[in-house]
Amino acid sequence: MTTPYQATPYQAYASPIPVQSTGLGHALRSEWTKIRTVRSTMWTLGVMLVLVIGIGLLVASLVSSHTPTGTPVLAFGFFGVLLGSLPVITLGVLVISSEYSTGMIRTTLTACPSRSRVLAAKAIVFALIAFVLSTLACLIVAGADAGMITGSGIPSPSGSQWLRATVGAGLYVALLGLLALAVGAMLRHSAGAITAMLGVVLLPLLLALFMATQSLATVRTKLIEYSVPNAIATLYGIPMLSTGPQGWTPLWILAGVTAVALAGALFVINKRDV
């Protein structure tokens, strides 16, 4: 309504700018501004890049001067990715939990009352950034591995090995971050959610290490098979056990778990008071 203002009492104010409906696109732009304007994003992603690329190149240079061991060439990117996933998890948690700890969430939700839209926008923006950057880092490391570790008897990596070591690893790291975001949305507490995610990533393998008894052998095997480090190792073609999920399967498992966690986050965020 753009009727001119009249001097009658209680004439309702009308803004000159017409109101239109907003959608996910606006929420995405808003979340993009949010994520690029806090320092924690630069820090965590910077640390991720340093860990993945730094450790990857270091290992490649160490390995290149020794005789081959039969390990697939691209597999030496594993160590960097395992460590590099931890800062991505931290960022995933912070993307949502920092809103709760600072009270920003109330401002966010008054600007965009659709909580599902807010969560979706956060998840999409974060996952895209995490995927693009970690895939890029993995690509640099894989390129270095393929270029530096050469010689007789060393087979050059196949196409599927290339794909798993770059896009596969990148997707896996992004999904871990997304799972962290969902956990952060459910717990609403930075330290708690980060600790929970560290437990998810590290505990199964640690527990398995101390299950030496025969009676626990099955549990031990399952814990190792489905642990996060083993899943990353599997993507690089160096699984710890010959049983359990192989090839791309660990990625689909994590995708399923993340989808369930995101559904849970969606449910609680819509139900709770903020």
């Binding site: 809103e99 600072t102 920003m104």
Partner: peptide, 10 residues
């Protein structure tokens, strides 16, 4: 609502 409903790092 409350003056503190914002991210202090932004």
């Amino acid at each position: 609502l409350e003056a503190q409903a914002r991210h202090p790092g932004r």
